[in-house]
């Protein structure tokens, strides 16, 4: 898997006095099994970057290449399909569907991909086992703790065997013990499954664990550090 951002610029609004940049002069490359974090204060542009990579928004200038294919030229529906096929997502507030059980939440992207029922079942079991929630598959999100909900969210993200996982502040709503467990889980998945991870985070524990850190300030990459 390779992800390249070339000369990316995103302008949100422009007037004579002021131009608001969501991203400016962004050039970066993410390879297979990368474990990367975007770090910066609130409003620095981390989420914008994640949205650009996910194809949720388009850059004003520049190109985003995924496996050498430009996703910036794809239509809205094509980008959605692309996301479904190649990426997994983990959210700060888990974003589980309240009307579905843990198992059904994990199954959701697989159903969207129209996979056959046997394969879906296998994948779901596998994913829930991977995150250590095999026995809680029939519970609804309201019946799970924060940490358990986040694990379900992770299981959902990995179930479709994506190439890249995008995680926006995944440990922000967790206590420190649970947050550490989740971070360990990320590392395990990165090593065992060869998944690439991009985090947007303030959590120093997570920052300490990543290989590459991009410090974002005012929409630009201010500094890059590698561990």
């Amino acid at each position: 898997m390779s992800l390249e951002l070339k000369n990316i610029e995103k302008i949100y609004s422009s007037s004579l006095e002021n131009t608001v940049y969501g991203a400016k002069d962004i050039n970066l490359k993410i390879d297979d099994q990368d474990f990367v974090a975007f770090v910066g204060p609130s409003g620095s542009g981390k989420t914008t970057l994640l949205n650009l990579i996910a194809g949720l928004i388009l850059p004003t200038k520049g190109e985003i290449l995924f496996d050498r294919q430009a996703i910036t030229h794809l239509s809205l529906e094509e980008r959605t399909a692309h996301r479904l096929s190649h990426m997994g997502f983990i959210f700060q507030d888990y974003q589980l569907l309240p009307v579905l059980t843990a198992e059904e939440n994990v199954e959701f992207p697989l159903q969207l991909k129209n996979m056959n029922q046997k394969e879906i079942k296998e994948r779901v079991s596998w994913a829930l086992e991977k995150v250590g929630l095999g026995s809680l598959h029939n519970r609804f999100p309201r019946e799970l703790s924060g940490g358990q909900q986040q694990r379900v969210s992770i299981a959902r993200a990995i179930a479709s065997k994506p190439r890249l996982i995008l995680a926006d502040e995944p440990t922000a709503n967790l206590d420190s013990k649970t947050a550490q467990e989740i971070i360990d889980l990320f590392k395990k998945l990165n090593q065992e499954l060869g998944l690439s991870f991009i985090f947007s985070t303030h959590d120093q524990r997570l920052i300490d664990q990543v290989k590459t850190i991009y410090y974002i300030k005012d929409g630009s990459i201010h500094e890059k550090k590698t561990h």
């Binding site: 996910a54 949720l56 809205l76 529906e77 959605t80 399909a81 996301r83 479904l84 096929s85 997502f89 959210f91 974003q95 569907l97 959701f108 992207p109 969207l112 991909k113 959902r156």
Partner: peptide, 16 residues
Amino acid sequence: EKEFKSLNILGASSRF
């Protein structure tokens, strides 16, 4: 709306 946005992020098309 927020849930729909999440669904879209996860890969659910507008049609879905």
